[in-house]
């Protein structure tokens, strides 16, 4: 059932994103030519300014819309009128949450990727693109030679950290919306309050754990005695673990609300 939900979720959101992506790539192309072409610069200097402005505005729009759609799909499709259909489907609540989360994650990654691609279109030298992979390998080798660490491993760890932090961020927002929905009025305010409160509690927990870790378990000395490379691995993996714990907590609470305390009005 998750597969079917994903199919419809992606279909429902693609209508918003695909045109924006196409527009961004087209404007990147236009800008490339208007920058390269002195003729246009000299005679019609207002056009490049306009197209550059549109390009920048599109990038901003894509990221704002990615964020808004993430919230709107969860709230509107599950907790407003459309929820009357979604929650009478013979589907587990957890599948609904996963379908929304995976789709949001997908669009966040796609938005990043398309923006990167548009920068390449705008600025990249084709000859530079040809040697991209060998340059990259050379860089990794240099890192290994100079710093003695495995660049690929770090990249993978860094990507996993990015993935888990985006994932836990998404579920945290769903968690806040679900808590907000438990209130009979001022739900937006309640969701926002939940977000603030939850983050204050997290900060508090971090400082308490940090304090206990240093005072009782002497984590600071342990880290200092460690080699720089293993210390940075530990740091990356530790952050990854914290993201996972926060994400799992938010997921479980959201799932519990949608399964056992659902009240659509």
């Amino acid at each position: 059932m998750l597969g079917k939900l994903l199919k419809y979720e992606i279909k429902a959101t693609a209508r918003t994103f695909i045109p924006l992506y196409i527009a961004l790539l087209i404007f990147a192309l236009i800008n490339r030519f208007s920058f390269a072409n002195n003729f246009i610069n000299n005679t019609l200097s207002v056009l490049p300014v306009i197209s550059a402005t549109v390009y920048t505005a599109l990038i901003v729009a894509i990221f704002v819309i990615t964020f808004l759609v993430m919230i709107q799909r969860f709230y509107r499709n599950l907790l407003s009128d459309e929820g009357y259909l979604m929650f009478t489907l013979p589907v587990k609540s957890s599948s609904h949450i996963w379908a929304k989360t995976i789709t949001s994650l997908l669009w966040i990654l796609a938005s990043g990727l398309v923006t990167f691609l548009s920068v390449l279109i705008l600025a990249a030298d084709p000859s530079w693109l040809g040697s991209f992979w060998s340059d990259f390998q050379q860089m990794m080798n240099l890192i290994h030679l100079e710093l003695g660490l495995n660049g690929y491993l770090f990249l993978i760890e860094f990507f996993l950290l990015l993935l888990t932090s985006v994932w836990s961020g998404i579920v945290m927002i769903y968690f806040c919306i679900s808590i907000g929905h438990r209130f009979s009025s001022h739900r937006l305010l309640a969701a926002f309050g939940t977000f603030l409160g939850f983050n204050v509690i997290l900060q508090l927990l971090f400082s308490i754990f940090g304090h206990v870790g240093i005072q009782v378990f002497h984590i600071d000395q342990w880290l200092q005695n460690m080699e720089a490379i293993s210390a940075s691995h530990t740091f990356l993996l530790g952050s990854l673990l914290i993201n996972l714990v926060i994400g799992i907590f938010c997921f479980l609470v959201t799932n519990n609300i949608l399964t056992k305390k659902l009240n659509l009005d």
């Binding site: 009128d81 459309e82 929820g83 009357y84 259909l85 009478t88 489907l89 013979p90 589907v91």
Partner: peptide
């Protein structure tokens, strides 16, 4: 939910 067919009083489409 597999065996219940529900028509709400509002539009859910």
């Amino acid at each position: 939910k597999k065996i219940v067919s529900y028509l709400p009083e509002r539009s859910y489409l």
